[in-house]
């Protein structure tokens, strides 16, 4: 194993990690503040990818498409919140899981009606494609570096919003004591709608970033959603810090597992046994990690204060 490869795989892990973080941040915010389990978060990711791809095709400008896509996902998120989710805040998790499971079916089918069941074409704009020479031996796709950059920027921005702004103060207050916040005359409903829309926009951002490199098709959200749940459970549900740590851990473990588990096993097992066990174990690795974390810390690594 050479160092360049390890460095490259670390970048890959980081890139997967920030992508998971963008999704996990919205999900964990919504859970932490509204106590809502939103399985349909992946559907918003899909909506972001579809809207951006659609606007990219119709306007021809990727930058404009990104803005329209983000705004569109925000809008879809807010409408969903107003129409369906609002009444679910006071319900138990079971109702939330089921209703949002229904929303997944609804959105997947709606997208299939609007754009067909086949994956649609989406591509990276020319100015973001190509490679960057990082060291003499290591070159890395520019677009993936952009994803890492945006993800880290969002993490910093979120940290700033949550810890330094009035909105952040309300968010923190809302997470620890809802009744008190509304008793102080804050419009809690409005706060919820804002937070949900914000989470939806983050999911949309993840979706629009992933559109050009993944397949934009109905059901694309569910493929990644379960990993995102693993992230927030490991990190501690409701905690942005936890989501960030969890996302990076899961991104790294998954990537490094896929890359190095088989060669490592081959040094102790026979090649055929390593061939059989390597990929199977790599697929289960993050779930195993989650079980271990929960066995020792049932509230995740960074439990939120509430």
């Amino acid at each position: 194993m050479n160092l360049v490869l390890i460095a490259e795989q670390t970048l890959n892990g980081l890139q997967l990690g920030v992508m998971l973080f963008l999704l996990a941040a919205g999900l964990t915010l919504v859970f932490g503040i509204m106590n809502l389990v939103n399985l349909a978060h992946g559907a918003l990711y899909m909506v972001g990818a579809y809207l951006t791809t659609y606007f990219h095709q119709t306007t021809g400008s990727f930058a404009l498409a990104v803005l329209l896509g983000l705004a569109g996902t925000l809008l879809v998120g807010i409408v969903t919140e107003l129409v369906a989710l609002r009444t679910l805040y006071e319900r138990d998790h079971l109702d939330q899981v089921l209703a949002t499971f229904g929303l997944i079916l609804f959105f997947n089918e709606l997208v299939a009606i609007l754009w067909g069941r086949a994956a649609i074409y989406s591509t990276i704009p020319d100015y973001l494609s190509g490679h960057v020479q990082i060291t003499a031996q290591l070159r890395y796709p520019l677009y993936r570096l952009v994803i890492i950059g945006i993800g880290l920027a969002v993490a910093v921005l979120l940290w700033w919003v949550v810890s330094r702004t009035r909105l952040g103060m309300l968010i923190r207050a809302g997470a620890s004591n809802r009744a008190m916040v509304s008793a102080l005359g804050i419009n809690i409903r409005l706060l919820y709608t804002i937070v949900f829309g914000f989470g939806a926009a983050l999911a949309g951002l993840a979706g629009l970033l992933s559109g050009p490199i993944y397949a934009v098709q109905p059901g694309m959200g569910e493929l990644i959603l379960i990993q995102v749940f693993v992230v927030i459970v490991i990190g501690g549900i409701g905690s942005i810090r936890g989501a960030f740590a969890g996302a990076l851990i899961v991104g790294m473990v998954d990537t490094l597992g896929r890359a190095f588990l088989k060669p490592t096993l081959a040094t102790v097992l026979s090649p055929t046994a390593a061939d059989a066990a390597g990929p199977a174990m790599a697929s289960m690795l993050i779930y195993l990690l989650m079980a271990v974390v929960l066995a020792f810390r049932p509230e995740g690594l960074f439990p939120s204060r509430s």
Binding site: L5, Q9, L16, Y214, L223, T255
Partner: peptide, 19 residues
Amino acid sequence: VYTRLGQTDYQAELSQLRS
């Protein structure tokens, strides 16, 4: 190399491939 069924991102495998 066998990848996870339904996997979306192949960047890690592609890096291995190049190496």
